[in-house]
């Protein structure tokens, strides 16, 4: 079920290769041997060009003194990495990225499961409701940012205006670090919760109904079937959703960049994420493509580590749930 387990060895011995001619047999064997690689090759060829080449290129850049425009300078070893790691801004960016990531991914996955569970019932007008939850996904991030930065304006925004009518003091969406993270996470959640809901729903629908029937016959409550059947059966999908949202979440760029007019993450960099930091180093006044590349590689490693941790935790939780 999980992504790394080998396929079940169902290559049965009952098939009739023996009936086939010798040549045909050899061709078939070759087919079995080569085709799997041929089938996955388009991805790897394309990745080689548009993924690995830039990655190798930036690895090379990251150990050089490298101006974005001026190009290659001296070889400096790991200096770019140590420079970046000693700057407080790196840690600000790290803090912001994780804060926004947690504020978006955790509620997103939870809501996706809950809403999917609601949609998984025998409701009327299924199509309508399902399309309804996916609606935000078709709104471009640029548009989402334009809309939400109006809604979240500190003095003139609708959200503070509404809070004001309930006597709540205006929240300083752009000044306060946590508030700005919440606002940005809201944009992300708005766009992606429905999407994840449908992925989870698709997985729920794929669970054979007779499994439930058996549980009901055994007298299991609805809650119990949900936690001991649905959730474990959703394991691969939940891993999938968590991994993709981790990867996407840690690279978040569009929404925080467009959260104000300056696009640098606030006067105190209170909502500057790692990718924005990378961008500021490379395209900002420093134009240090070397340092930016170092940050890209650090971010890459962080994502890999978090991804691995995520994977292990999710695996453990869902296998415990199975028991």
């Amino acid at each position: 079920m999980s992504i790394s387990s080998p396929p079940r060895p169902r290559q049965s011995t009952t098939t009739g290769y023996s009936k086939a001619a010798e040549r045909k047999h050899r061709l078939a064997a070759l087919d079995m041997k080569v085709s799997p690689y041929l089938f996955i090759s388009p991805f790897f060829i394309l990745f080689l060009i548009v993924g690995l080449f830039p990655l190798a290129y930036t690895a090379f850049v990251s150990v050089h003194d490298w101006n974005l425009i001026g190009g290659q300078g001296d070889f400096v070893g790991l200096k770019n990495f140590t420079d970046v790691l000693t700057q407080p801004r790196f840690y600000t960016a790290l803090r912001n990225t994780f804060s926004i990531f947690l504020l978006s991914s955790v509620p997103q996955v939870l809501f996706a499961i809950i809403v999917a569970a609601i949609l998984d019932q025998n409701i009327r007008a299924k199509t309508f409701w399902r399309m309804g939850v996916l609606l935000p996904y078709v709104v471009a991030p640029v548009a989402v940012s334009l809309i939400f930065s109006k809604l979240f304006a500190d003095q003139s925004g609708m959200i503070n205006e509404i809070l004001g009518t309930f006597g709540v003091n205006p929240i300083r969406w752009h000044a306060d670090p946590l508030a700005s993270h919440v606002a940005i996470a809201t944009m992300v959640n708005f766009r992606w919760t429905g999407y994840n809901t449908l992925i989870v729903l698709a997985a729920m629908q794929a669970i054979p109904r007779d499994v439930y029937e058996a549980a009901v016959i055994d007298g299991a409550s609805r809650m119990r079937t949900f936690f001991s059947i649905t959730i474990p059966m959703l394991r691969p999908t939940i891993i999938f959703v968590i991994i993709t949202s981790t990867i996407g979440g840690l690279q978040i760029f569009d929404e925080p960049r467009l959260f104000d007019q300056a696009g640098q993450g606030g006067a105190d960099r209170q909502w500057m994420t790692m990718t924005m930091y990378l961008y500021e180093l490379g395209w900002g006044t420093q134009k240090s493509f070397g340092r930016a590349s170092a940050v890209a590689w650090l971010l890459f490693l962080i994502i890999l580590i978090i991804g691995a941790i995520n994977f292990m935790i999710t695996r453990r939780i869902s296998s415990e749930g199975k028991r």
């Binding site: 080449f53 830039p54 290129y57 690279q251 760029f253 590349s293 890209a296 890459f300």
Partner: peptide
């Protein structure tokens, strides 16, 4: 996990 922003220049 490869941050896409940086691929921009080589690409």
């Amino acid at each position: 996990a490869v941050p896409t922003q940086l691929g921009v220049v080589p690409l």
